[in-house]
Nucleic acid binder design. Structure first.
Lengths: 355, 355
DNA sequence: CCCACCGGGTAACGCGCGTTACCAACAGCG
DNA sequence: CGCTGTTGGTAACGCGCGTTACCCGGTGGG
């Protein structure tokens, strides 16, 4: 506890070592310390005092005050990311990718959850409070990350700094975005099945209106068309994006042609549905991949890597999208042109044991 | 000021509006603006100038500079959390709980990943770089969060500021920590099985040396002892903490007494192993929960909520631990005494359909 | 001998804000 | 009348640092 002049006690606040302390300790001016610490090459400091200063830094355990530096230099070295991912962790790898990349660029990533506004007042926009908080910290750029690929509306204040969307796109403007190449993913999945000799393929579809479903299905059709085939509409069934939904859809598909003509492969548009499909297949005494090959989408590790047999699936490149988002932001803040308004990121096929 | 078509005015925000600009616009001194914005009750500002200032704030779209405020007031309103969770997202709810609580306390949570030091140099300690970064931001308190309950070593610099450990404990010191009450969790799980009429219970154990295994097993034994029963050592099998490990262990347990005496319930010490156990049970033509009741631990949503039947399991209170960590930190920074060096948090039973 | 130049530094300003000390005007009171 | 409060403010300092302008003592060139 420390005492003020009035005698009252306040929480102890360690008086930090400042550049002035370092300067005194080294017997030089604070300016010299600043020059040495910021490695200015055009500053003329002799090698001897330079080492003396560095030694003082070590001895005193000096640690720069990032806030003061930001204030004086007018750059914070921070990016902010507004995301619902913290509360819906499915796509947490976006944060990881972004954070790693930011770290490489010697920048810091400030993470703000996008759904906490209701904690302060019911009428505030969801992301607005988070965005505002980040701007108060004077972030140099903003990222918005969604848990699933969709269109979003970004608060107006986002226009004050460079902004990039990750795993979502600007529903009403021209903000640059990074999204998965759903179509190529659908294509590669079905190509893999074709390559395995499957020509009759059932599809367990998501809500047909969301971008993921549209793209993946389109890709699937392309792959089939390239082989001179097409989807049997009877074998494309939508369901809730859950294991139960996948189970129901799989039952429907597997039982559709009792007389013969049952598909030999199932393309499940997400892994949770594939999980349910497994049950439906096993229930019927069929084996995976012997009787029915299954391929998923998303690569949700907890599911895909632990199902038995392990699920072959198409991965959503979350980490890569996060990194690319930061790179794009870096280009924007540096005033460089970016490659495209919308960057598509490849969805690689992960071979396991279900095909 | 900009006007919309409806004639309502919308603040046009531009970077660089300072308190001085607001003061000029309102025709008062900057001090007056500061007083109004920080709501000092002992400052004497007339109601009229107060509204004039607030109006100027609106019109100019003034946004405080958090860094400058922190510099002048010598408090940042930030806590820092060092965590491996970003890279191993299992326990991401810790972050959510901490962030929500911090938000309620009008504080901000700075998240630093604990494994990025190798990006700058191979010789730096893992958490050290992250901790250092946070201290440079002048966080007022530090949290360390682990993905699984264990002992950890924290960098020495953490001592400069109040520190609380979440889901881990200080292996060599006296830092306060928040951990799940594994023992009570094991007890409640087995009590539930007993209540269901099960007296012969198989246990799929984790690595027997980790705190989670020790506590949960101890709790299980307590519950049995209270009913005058005890574990059959032949029915306690350790395995890798994966679905495959659970499958193997379950096979072992289920086939141990071919002549009769097979357990009617399985206590799986985590949900991934329960997932594998499901397969072993189904393979043998047995039903869940009809023939074999299964109870898990961890409540890993992606698994527990999607297995068929849905898995009854004991939840790890990640979110609550995160919140409690922040509360404890708040008490520490305010100089208040904390309840205990180690706070145990209850692990509630989540009833689904597997018992 | 004077002057330009260069190496090696330092003084001083300002970033945006919290905070303390102070000041002017006016009312109430004896 | 002087004195004391009270109301409604303002001037000025400093937080820790980046940055610019400047200074001083040598040195080489003319």
């Amino acid at each position: 506890m420390a005492k003020t002049t009035t005698g009252e006690t306040v929480p102890v606040r360690q008086r930090g070592v400042t550049m002035k302390d370092v300067a005194n300790h080294a017997g030089v001016s604070r300016t010299a310390v600043s020059f040495v610490l910021s490695n200015r090459e055009n500053a003329s400091i002799s090698e001897e005092t330079r080492t003396r200063i560095n030694q003082a830094v070590q001895e005193l355990g000096y640690r720069p005050n990032a806030g003061a530096r930001a204030l004086a230099s007018r750059r914070s070295d921070w990016y902010g990311i507004v995301t619902e991912i913290v509360t819906a962790p499915f796509a947490v790898d976006i944060i990881k990718g972004a954070q790693d990349q930011a770290w490489l660029d010697r920048r810091f990533l400030l993470i703000a959850p996008s759904d906490q506004a209701d904690a302060v007042g019911p009428n505030e926009g969801l992301e607005d409070a988070a965005t505002e908080k980040l701007l108060e910290q004077r972030v140099e750029g903003l990222l918005y990350a969604a848990t699933f690929h969709r269109g979003v509306h970004v608060p107006a204040s986002a226009n004050e700094v460079p902004t990039v969307l990750i795993n979502c796109f600007d529903a009403d403007g021209k903000l640059p975005s990074i999204v998965p190449d759903e179509r190529a993913g659908g294509r590669v999945a079905v190509e893999r099945l074709l390559q395995g000799g499957h020509t009759r393929i059932g599809v367990i579809n998501l809500d047909p209106n969301i971008p993921a479903a549209v793209g993946r299905l389109e890709g699937a059709r392309e792959a089939l068309a390239a082989a001179g085939l097409e989807l049997d509409p009877e074998l494309v069934v939508s369901g809730y994006a859950t294991a139960d939904g996948g189970y129901d859809a799989a039952c429907h598909i597997l039982d559709r042609y009792p007389e013969g003509g049952r598909p030999t492969a199932l393309f499940c548009l997400n892994d949770r549905m594939a999980m349910g499909a497994y049950d439906a297949i096993k229930e019927r005494g069929l084996t995976i991949p012997g009787d029915i090959a299954v391929i998923g989408f998303d690569n949700q590790e907890l599911i895909a890597a632990y199902l038995r047999p392990k699920l072959t699936t198409v991965a959503l490149p979350f980490e890569r999208m996060g990194a690319l988002g930061v790179q794009t932001l870096a280009a924007l803040t540096a005033g460089q042109p970016i490659l495209a308004d919308q960057q598509l990121v490849d969805c690689p096929l992960l071979e396991r044991s279900s095909v």
